Amino acid sequence: MDIRHTTNPTDVKQYDTERLRQEFLIESLFEPNKLNMTYTHYDRMVVGGAQPVGEEIALDAGDALRTEYFLERREIGFLSIGGPAIITVDGEAYELDKLDVLYVGKGKRDVKLASKDSANPAKLYFCSALAHAELPTRKMTREEANPLNLGAQETSNERVLYKYIHADGIQSCQLMLGVTSLQTGSVWNTMPSHVHDRRMEAYLYFDMAEETRVFHMMGEPSQTRHLVVGNEQAIISPPWSIHSGVGTSNYTFCWSMAGENYTFTDMDVVPASGLK
C-alpha cells in the first residue's frame, strides 16, 4: 500500500515537477496478478488497480488498514476497463464487461477478482471510501448508466457522460463514481474548471494511445500547475485544487469523489478568465 499524505496549497506553490508527480500522480496501477493500491489521506480514499491473469486476486490490504478485512469499515466501486471480469463477493459472482461498474458495500468479507478469459485479461480499477452503513452490492452496465451527450465540437469537448454511483443511481454512503468519454476531435475535460472544497476527487485516464498524453491541470485557480499523464495513470486531486485537462488526442477518464457532501452541484465554478 502506497501512502500519500495531504498537502498544503501554500507549500505546493514551491513544488517542482518531480515533487508534484510524487504527491499527486499514480503511475502504475495494472500489473499481472498484482493488487496495486494507494491510500490517500484526502478523505481516506484508496485508489487501486488489479489485472488478474489465470488466477484470482483477493481484495486484501494486509495490515495497512488495521481492520480484520478490507470492507469492515469501507465501501468500494469497481470499474472494468479491460477484458471481461468476474468479481466474487461472499460467494456470489458478478460478471463485468468493459465500462460496467460494481458497487460493494461495507461488511462484505470475501472479495475476489478474476478474468473470464486469461487470453483477454480483465483490468479492474477501484476506489474505496469510508462507510457508515451497509448497502447492497449492485452492478450497473454502461447502458444502464443513462449516457448523457454533452459539449460540442466547436469547444473541443464533445463527450458522453456515464453516472454510476451517485444519489440517483447506485446508492452509497459517500462514494461517487462515473466515466466521461471524449469523442474523436475533442480534447478538453472539465472546462470551465471548478473546485469543491468539501470533496476530494481521483481521476483515471485510459483508452489512450501509447504515444498520447493528457496535460492535467491542478492547483489553486490563481496558481495553476500541470501534470503530464499517460494511459492508465491516475491523479489524486485535493479539495482545494482545480481538475481540468487537455489531451493530445481524445481519451476516457473515470472520476470518483468522496467527502462531506453527496451532490454534484456542490462546486465553485472558475471561468477560464479567472485562471492564472
Rank of each mutant, 00 (worst) to 15 (best):
G169L: 09
E68H: 08
S237F: 01
W240Y: 15
G185M: 06
W188T: 02
H132S: 15
D2F: 08
L130E: 15
V270Y: 13
K163H: 13
M1N: 06
G49H: 05
S222Y: 07
K98A: 06
V179F: 01
P121M: 07
A114Q: 10
E23S: 11
P271E: 13
R19W: 01
I236T: 07
Y15G: 10
E18T: 13
I236R: 14
L113K: 02
S237W: 03
N231F: 04
S249M: 01
N33M: 03
F253W: 10
G48A: 02
D16W: 04
V229M: 11
S186F: 03
Y39D: 03
L96R: 04
Y94S: 12
T155H: 09
D197F: 04
C173W: 08
R109I: 04
N189A: 01
G185V: 05
E143Y: 04
N146Q: 12
Y164W: 07
Y94Q: 09
M1C: 06
T248E: 11
S222E: 15
R19S: 04
L150R: 14
S249T: 02
T6K: 14
Y39I: 08
R142E: 01
G54A: 07
R225D: 14
I235K: 13
V229N: 11
C127E: 11
N33A: 04
Q233H: 04
K13M: 13
V46N: 05
A119T: 14
L35C: 04
D197H: 06
H5D: 12
V104P: 07
W188F: 15
A234F: 03
M217E: 10
Q183W: 05
I3Q: 06
D110L: 03
A50T: 01
V111F: 06
D63Q: 13
N231Y: 02
S256A: 15
L161G: 00
D16H: 08
Y203G: 10
N250K: 09
W240V: 03
I170K: 10
G49D: 02
L59I: 08
Y39Q: 11
F70H: 11
L29R: 06
H194W: 13
D90N: 14
G54Q: 03
F264Q: 08
Y251S: 06
V228F: 00
A131V: 04
F78D: 12
Q183R: 13
I3S: 02
